[in-house]
């Protein structure tokens, strides 16, 4: 009975801290925010909870709906591009020799160990007018030009009189590049995990039965890796949808996503009720995505599960 008491106190000791943490730093602020979203601004700092739906109605303004749609679109593109890049990467890692595999995985995880801000600034350094990409292009331009001169075509300025650096920053493509760069590991890792678990003999059986690589990829690998693909999509899409730093630093004036709008409500606009309402709409959209994933995985389980 004594040991039972000891266990009980150990249980409470282990249970209290995280519960306390969760309640104080997550549930209480979230509830407050939820209350704010049904309130109205009163003076400079005051918020009057009037249970009005005004803030949600404001969010339906075409301006904000447009930004929501744009965020969804950006997140969708990010997820799609990540999926297209990550699949071959994950396959390459799975089929790499065991020693190389470890290093490749490390390479994928490495960015997680650096601050997002630093990574984004590094990307700026690479993409800006006087950045590495443009240097590289200039180098190629010069060599191509001197080659043309060498073959006697130098005087025609076939490649333009001067090198024009590409403006790759402060527009939507810059945001997309940044989002893909930041979220790629989220896609590679679940795909890798799914493919690594996959029994090689399924692929061999497919080859043995006469299928080629593409057929095997389509009919065997993708269906069996579906749980990994779904996880990858979800954990790429959700943070991409709520991205704040990347569009803020890499985007132009027309590149803002919903998180940037929300931030503005809490800071410069000082409109907490509206910011809260927008936040909760974003959260509901995310929940919807998660629910969709749960339904999909359930259907898949009913249709026979991967070994």
């Amino acid at each position: 009975m004594d040991s039972w008491r000891q266990h009980r106190s150990a249980f409470w000791a282990a249970f209290t801290a995280p519960t306390f943490w969760l309640v104080v730093f997550f549930l209480i602020p979230l509830s407050l925010l939820w209350l704010f979203s049904f309130g109205e601004k009163e003076g400079i700092t005051g918020i009057n909870i009037t249970w009005t739906l005004k803030q949600y109605a404001r969010a339906l303004d075409p301006l904000y709906l447009g930004i929501f749609a744009k965020s969804l679109w950006m997140a969708f593109l990010t997820t799609l591009i990540c999926l297209i890049i990550a699949f071959p990467v994950a396959i390459a890692i799975v089929f790499a020799p065991p020693k190389a595999r470890l290093w490749l995985l490390l390479l994928i995880i490495l960015p997680f160990w650096t601050n997002l801000l630093i990574r984004t600034y590094a990307l700026i350094a690479v993409l800006r007018t006087r950045g590495q990409v443009n240097f590289g292009l200039e180098w190629m331009w010069e060599h191509a030009n001197s080659f043309l001169t060498l073959v006697g075509l130098g005087s025609y300025n076939l490649l333009g009189a001067d090198f024009e650096p590409l403006g790759m920053l402060y527009n939507n493509s810059a945001v997309l590049i940044g989002l893909v760069y930041v979220h790629l590991p989220f896609m590679v890792l679940p795909l890798y995990a799914a493919l690594d678990r996959l029994d090689r003999s399924y692929m061999e059986a497919s080859f043995d039965l006469g299928a080629g690589h593409i057929r095997t990829f389509r009919s065997i690998i993708i269906p069996l890796a579906l749980p990994g693909i779904a996880s990858g999509i979800v954990i790429t899409f959700i943070p991409a949808m709520g991205s704040y730093l990347t569009p803020d630093l890499l985007g132009g004036t027309d590149s803002q996503m919903i998180a940037n709008v929300i931030e503005r409500q809490f800071k410069s606009a000082n409109d907490w009720p509206f910011g809260a309402a927008l936040s909760f709409i974003l959260m509901y959209v995310t929940f919807f995505g998660l629910a969709l994933r749960a339904v999909l995985s359930k259907r898949e389980k009913m249709g026979g599960k991967a070994a």
């Binding site: 029994d199 399924y202 059986a205 006469g210 269906p223 069996l224």
Partner: peptide, 21 residues
């Protein structure tokens, strides 16, 4: 010659019956 171009077929030790079909 590649496995998919041979007129032999194999029964795998693990059977490798595709679980999603």
């Amino acid at each position: 010659v590649q496995p998919n171009a041979r007129c032999v077929n194999m029964v795998f030790q693990s059977y490798a019956v595709f679980p999603h079909m």
